[in-house]
Amino acid sequence: MKTVFVTVGTTSFDELIETITSYEAARALKARGYERLVLQVGRGLLLPAADSCPQVGLEVFRFKDSIADEIKQADLIISHAGAGSCLEALGAGKPLLVVVNDKLMNNHQLELARQLHMDSHLLYCTCSTLTETLRTMDLSVLQPFLPGQPKNFADFLDRVLGVQ
């Protein structure tokens, strides 16, 4: 079953949860063949009931020690702009749509999401354009995100420190 996983990280992002469970957004998901919607809602006030979104199968939780399983099972990840969530989703090789919370201005975490968007590693929208993005997005434009190379760091350090 094609699954969408929505994650808001350690904070809350009620506007995203509200938009993605709206009739229009759920219909757009359904039209793309997604049948299961898993929401990680964090500290949000909004905790949608399992039957509040009849077009798709809805599962909701606040936190888990690790969201690695949810990411692994997902075919599309919709995430807040947090660096940790972005890197985890991209590291797992999943298509990622980042929804920016435009109520949080000057958030330095946006820097990374913006750059990764410029490098075509993820799609980028706000809550007000989310439904439209779900209708029109083209996931095939996304470029794979190669893992960083800590070996280069280790080799450099070995050389300058004289480690044999």
Binding site: A83, L87, H108, Q109, E111, L112, R114, G148, F153, L161
Partner: peptide, 16 residues
């Protein structure tokens, strides 16, 4: 004591 600092990958345009 050598000080080795690695800026977080989150920092693209400005230093922390």
């Amino acid at each position: 004591v050598l000080i080795v600092y690695v800026e977080s990958i989150c920092r693209v345009q400005t230093l922390s």
